[in-house]
Design a binder for these strands. Structure first.
Length: 461
RNA sequence: UCCCCGAUAGCUCAAUCGGCAGAGCGGGUGGCUGUUAACCACUAGGUUGCAGGUUCAAGUCCUGCUCGGGGAGCCA
């Protein structure tokens, strides 16, 4: 007999004479003469209730069936006489697939702290909250592909291994096959000459530069993959390995870029709202009471757009005694970003046209010669969700900016070359997938929205 | 990396001025004829994060370390 997913069983409009489900026991309640089991198979948030009568042949197996055990249940799907569920399974046969020692199984029926569950990340997806979270994560990833495919974007697989020794987005992890203490190279030879690639190699910190080249060929592309930053960041918003969505559009400027970012966040949010309602409601109930309201704002209201100069004016005239004083030329601090989107506007805010000195070399220089066409999308509680820009497409300007940034031109020959042959205005951004999930669920620590988080000094599982 | 806070039973926490190590949940055993975080009774369970120090006496005070949380910086 074929296995029925619990999600499908619970959605039925009629009973079933024969049903087979497989899953993990969430709880067992005994009474005289019969026993109730609640089984979850991960297909949905809800468990299915199984009743085992002492007259059933399976009853003797129950002594070994505790919370956490894996079970196969055959029986009939019938309407439940009890309150709380429409359907239940009257079990005729049970098969114990995998025992779980109740003395040591760490998950209880009651609520656990996120900190404790992080120490048992191999088991936490078996809880309601983390099961819901990772179903949502899966659906949100699908929403990304759905959104871009609808708009004629091509999914591009950019390399994870890179030889660009400074992509400009942070410290990189070095990748090597050399022994830990290699013999010293001959005078004048690179220490990486004997390494796998014959040069220094790293894990990518961004697919942007490569995506730009493909945008200037296929038109609109996006990448969606893992990204690695070796920064010693110890915050609830940073991970050493995270997933990033990086669209890149040819024939597009900074306004097109902001439009795309706003549409993407709205569409992803709407998709999950429509397809993961039950899982999302768990977060609205137990994690953030105001979640559905703030998601509604994110989906329906126009995001505030203001220039960096305007943002500085608002901050200066706010009368707020910020720890870091605000003045043109200084980067916005977290307290400033939070003030803007959490207190002043109470909705997502896009800040654009930042001073050139505080932004990356590849961002397009504006006509004022003081600012670049950069934009950050800030959302309440999470902060920077998107960082992007129109790219510098003018060869001479880009060359000058690379030199000014103190970088070597020959490392970027191919990036510059793209500006010599049919260069066009183009723009793109990076959206942190985990940060999006934090916004979506109200979860406040990035380590709880990624299956096995990698952070400084943490490489367990 | 810097600043602040914390670590007591498997989990979540309490322990007054430095004076007997406690509860709920979870586990075990028994009971209960439809339970819903079931209920009732009994029961086991501790190197108080680690290493030093002060004291007649340290979970409690001091120093160092480890781990966790929050804030800051870096950014997505």
């Amino acid at each position: 007999m074929q296995r029925t997913l619990i999600k499908a069983a619970l959605n039925r409009t009629t009973g079933m004479d024969r049903i087979l489900v497989k899953g993990w026991v969430r709880t067992r309640r005994d009474s005289k003469g019969f026993s109730f089991l609640e089984i979850n198979d991960g297909s949905c948030l809800k468990n299915i209730q199984v009743i085992v009568d002492e007259t059933a042949p399976a009853f003797s197996l129950l002594k070994d069936v505790g919370t956490g055990a894996a079970l196969e249940v055959a029986g009939t799907l019938v309407e439940s006489p009890g309150a709380g569920q429409k359907w239940e399974i009257k079990a005729s046969e049970l098969r114990l697939l995998g025992m779980a020692d109740p003395e040591t199984f760490p998950l209880q029926k009651k609520r656990h702290t996120d900190e404790f569950l992080r120490t048992i990340a191999h088991l936490r997806p078996r809880t309601n909250k983390y099961g819901a979270l990772f179903r949502i994560r899966s659906e949100a990833a699908f929403a990304v592909h759905h959104f871009f495919r609808d708009r004629g974007f091509f999914h591009l697989h950019t390399p994870i291994l890179t030889g660009s020794d400074c992509e400009g987005a942070g410290e990189m992890f070095r990748v090597s096959t050399l022994p830990l203490c290699p013999p010293a190279p001959p005078q004048g030879e690179s220490p990486f000459a004997e390494d796998f690639f014959g040069k220094e190699a790293s894990l990518t910190v961004s697919g942007q530069l490569e995506a730009e080249l493909f945008a200037c060929a296929l038109g609109n592309v996006y990448t969606f993959g893992p990204t690695f930053r070796a920064e010693n960041s110890n915050t609830p918003r940073h991970a050493a390995e995270f997933w990033m969505i990086e669209p890149e559009m040819a024939f597009a400027d900074i306004v097109d870029d902001m439009d795309l970012g706003e549409e993407l966040v709205k569409a992803m949010t709407r998709h999950v709202m429509e397809n993961c309602r039950e899982d999302l409601e768990l977060f609205a109930r137990f994690v953030d009471k105001g979640l559905l309201g703030s998601l509604d704002t994110i989906m329906t209201e126009a995001y505030v757009r203001l220039s960096y100069a305007e943002a500085v004016d608002i901050l200066r005239s706010s009368g707020r005694p910020f720890e870091f004083p605000v003045h043109f030329g200084a980067d916005l601090q977290t307290e400033h970003e939070r003030f803007l989107c959490e207190e002043h506007f109470k909705k997502p805010v896009i800040v654009y046209d930042y001073p050139r000195e505080i932004k990356a070399f590849y961002m397009r220089l504006n006509d004022d010669d003081k600012t670049v066409a950069a934009m950050d999308l800030l959302v309440p509680r999470v902060g920077e969700l998107i960082g992007g820009s129109q790219r510098e497409e003018r060869y001479a300007v880009l060359e000058r900016r690379i030199v000014e940034a103190g970088m070597r031109l020959d490392n970027y020959w191919w990036y510059l070359d793209a500006r010599r042959y049919g260069s066009v205005p183009h723009a793109g951004f990076g959206l942190g997938f985990e940060r999006f999930l934090m916004m979506l669920t109200g979860v406040t620590n990035i380590r709880d929205v990624i299956p096995f988080p990698r952070t400084p000094k943490h490489l367990e599982f």
